[in-house]
């Protein structure tokens, strides 16, 4: 994308304006595409112990001196219940049908969704709506009876916290495990950049679950990554 890759300590705020620390002196910064969670962005505004953030950034943002993408609070769009509404959102804004279908998603906050999920718990993947990193989920086909019963209780206690989806049969790929090559599950995350037009990056993030049989590819759970090529033809 041709923008400098910076860390929190490469930026500072002076007079409520954001600057980048360079050998040519401070350079003004007007827009930041950030990969930090809200709570680490600015120790003066949120988590005071954060060493990753930029002190004063949020005040500069409030005064309109810097644009943050994604804006503060956009984490709400990460709520997994949004999956279920995607076809309806596309229809509402574009009056079109989705070209790529999403995985069928049941919202446990809705009575039919909850009933369906409880009935088919051993076939479904159930995920907490507000979590990420592969935490707190249930993979029905791989769970024991006791785990299923336990999860059913959690689900009934707080149905709004969950969605469920059919278990996807992820592909496998040859993976170096110790001294041998074994099959491990992978997924592919493509990236699309939206500006005046939309283009898909000619590559992607391939994540691999390093534990045998596991369908959880998240790096926070010990997952790895694979080099990914897109062939021209």
């Amino acid at each position: 994308m041709g923008v400098p890759l910076v860390e929190g300590k490469d930026l500072f705020v002076h007079d409520h304006k954001v600057f980048m620390r360079t050998v040519m002196g401070p350079k003004p910064v007007h827009a930041i595409y950030r990969r930090l969670n809200d709570e680490f962005l600015d120790p003066l505004a949120f988590n005071a112990d954060s060493l990753l953030g930029v002190p004063g950034l949020v005040e500069a943002y409030r005064r309109g001196n810097v644009t943050l993408a994604n804006a503060l609070g956009t984490g709400v769009a990460d709520d997994k219940a949004v999956y279920a509404y995607m076809p309806r959102i596309i229809r509402y804004y574009l009056n079109e049908d989705p070209i790529l279908d999403s995985v069928e998603t049941h919202i446990c906050a809705e009575p039919e969704g909850l009933a369906y999920t409880l009935e088919n718990l051993d076939k479904l993947v159930v995920k907490p709506v507000g979590e990420s990193g592969g935490y707190g989920l249930l993979i029905g086909p791989q769970a024991t009876r006791a785990e299923l019963d336990d999860f059913a209780r959690k689900l009934q206690d707080n149905p709004a916290n969950y969605i469920s989806q059919p278990t996807i049969g992820l592909s496998v790929t040859p993976t170096l495990c110790g001294n041998s090559v074994e099959a491990r599950h992978v997924d592919l995350r493509p990236f699309a950049v939206t500006g005046r037009s939309v283009w898909v990056l000619p590559g992607g993030l391939s994540r691999v679950a390093l534990r045998k049989g596991s369908l959880v590819v998240n790096s926070s759970q010990g997952g790895g990554s694979k080099d990914t090529w897109v062939m021209a033809s």
């Binding site: 300590k9 500072f12 620390r21 050998v23 120790p43 003066l44 005071a48 112990d49 060493l51 002190p55």
Partner: peptide
């Protein structure tokens, strides 16, 4: 070329 950043009050030593 890399002057130490000056931070307002909080967490100045840690930063």
């Amino acid at each position: 070329f890399w002057p130490a950043p000056v931070y307002p009050d909080v967490a100045s030593t840690a930063m």
